[in-house]
Amino acid sequence: MTEDSVITDEMKAAIGVESEPSVYEIEKEPIRRWAESIGDSNPLYRDEEYARSKGYRSIIAPPGFMAQYAFPVKAGGGGRSFRSPFTRMLNGGNDYEFFKPIQSGDTISATNKLAEIRERTGGMGKMLIIINETTFKNQDGEIVAKARSTGISY
């Protein structure tokens, strides 16, 4: 770290600290509404009989649904908070890994942590690159998905 680093001890201490889980009950209608809103007519996301014919228990969530759906039945809060010297935030990117299908009827627990924090100097001056990682587990404790989001604080 250089002397004028904007990365503080508070930020370093926040890395890797897991949040309390947020809990989601996966239901058919929010999945269908999601698919409608992006314009995806895949029957896996709306037709239970069709989904069963493909070996699933019920309709499944589209890729990315879990990481972006913001209506938990119980909110766990984020990882440990820290102060940024910057006030503006941009969404830099989203990356998802999928291990098991997420199906209607599942109860998903999501824990979040700050995975990485870097600083960079760009056209707008100094900025912080903040990478958060969320792990999603189903009711059987199996990891179904992981998501990484990159935030740019500037």
């Binding site: 995806d40 895949n42 896996l44 493909k54 589209p62 890729p63 941009l90 969404n91 830099g92 990117g93 989203n94 990356d95 998802y96 890994e97 999928f98 990484r148 990159t150």
Partner: peptide
């Protein structure tokens, strides 16, 4: 990716930068 891989295909991972 889902449309292209079809419903017998499985997406293991994907991501993008804005």
């Amino acid at each position: 990716v889902g449309d292209w891989a079809g419903n017998e295909g499985i997406i293991k991972s994907y991501g993008c930068s804005y």
